[in-house]
Design a protein around this nucleic acid. Structure first.
Length: 269
DNA sequence: CCCTGAACCTGACCGC
DNA sequence: TGCGGTCAGGTTCAGG
């Protein structure tokens, strides 16, 4: 479900309701996610959530000297309900706050994660080697070109690698490459600076627009308030099987690294 | 170091 | 209605 815009949309939706709130009760119904939820999460009962942050697609629940690290995987979502609202079979975690908000983590496929840690969350093994945020100045053309020069794999796989840049998932990778006019299978090392620059700008544009639209709702993504995101209406190639909006030629679907890639054979070279 | 493929899980949908 | 196959927005990890 979530790429960076969906995670950011979730974060913004939750933030005003849970930041500064004290944890009253934590219920783990299913601890088996990507990694097991640590038992010591119960030690956060009675503590106050300082802030809700994001790094890449990870959510950081900052409790001051300790934190939770959350990831929504492919099918995870976070919502706020009433404390007594019933849980369905995929709602694995419930965190009740003292202000009456009840945070629910639902994840049918259980590829997501909820971990605990102490100290600086950015030093966590899962975060410390991540590439720059795509919308930050750290993601600049010099850095991007350096990364691409030493990669012989397809450009689509490179921009989806979180060690190069975080937050570009399958949908937005396809969209960015279309905007930049680059064929998804082009070897990264063979793309010149100019075209890489266009790609970098395309990634920025697609992600910031998607955030502004509240993320993409394809099947079951809903924002933390239960509303859908509206970016799906603006997808230019992903999941489409008509003609290209620019040249009219039929779009193609191929498979790269076990993922579907959509592109226009007329516009992308 | 770089690259590829397997692995983790459930549900929706399609054709027979 | 049931069954088997395919597909799904992520990412770590093992092994070449």
């Amino acid at each position: 479900m979530p790429e960076l815009p969906e995670v950011e949309t979730t974060r913004r939706g939750l933030q005003p309701h849970i930041e500064g709130q004290r944890v009253r009760r934590i219920e783990i119904r299913q601890a088996k996610l990507r990694w097991p939820i640590p038992d010591n999460i119960q030690g956060f009962q009675g503590r106050e959530l300082q802030s809700l942050k994001r790094r890449g697609k990870y959510l950081i629940f900052d409790f001051g000297d300790a934190y939770w690290l959350g990831h929504l995987g492919m099918s995870g979502s976070l919502r706020l309900l009433a404390p007594d609202a019933p849980a369905d079979r995929h709602e694995h975690v419930q965190v009740d706050f003292c202000n009456g908000q009840s945070l629910r983590y639902r994840d049918p496929r259980r590829f997501g994660a909820l971990l605990t840690g102490q100290g600086d969350p950015l030093q966590h093994p899962l975060l410390c080697k991540l590439g720059p945020e795509p919308l930050s100045p750290d993601f600049d053309i010099d850095y991007f070109q350096r990364q691409c020069k030493r990669r012989n794999s397809a450009i689509k796989q490179v921009i989806m690698d979180s060690h190069v840049v975080v937050g570009v998932g399958n949908i937005y990778a396809c969209e960015s490459l279309f905007l930049a006019g680059i064929h998804p299978k082009t070897r990264a090392s063979r793309i010149g600076r100019e075209r890489l620059h266009r790609l970098l700008e395309a990634i920025r544009k697609v992600l910031s627009q998607a955030i502004a639209e509240g993320g993409t709702t394809l099947r079951d993504f809903t924002r933390s308030d239960g509303q859908p995101g509206y970016f799906a209406q603006q997808l230019l190639v992903y999941g489409r099987d008509g003609g290209c909006i620019r040249c009219g030629r039929p779009l193609k679907r191929i498979v790269q690294a076990q993922r579907s890639t959509f592109y226009c054979p007329g516009c992308q070279h």
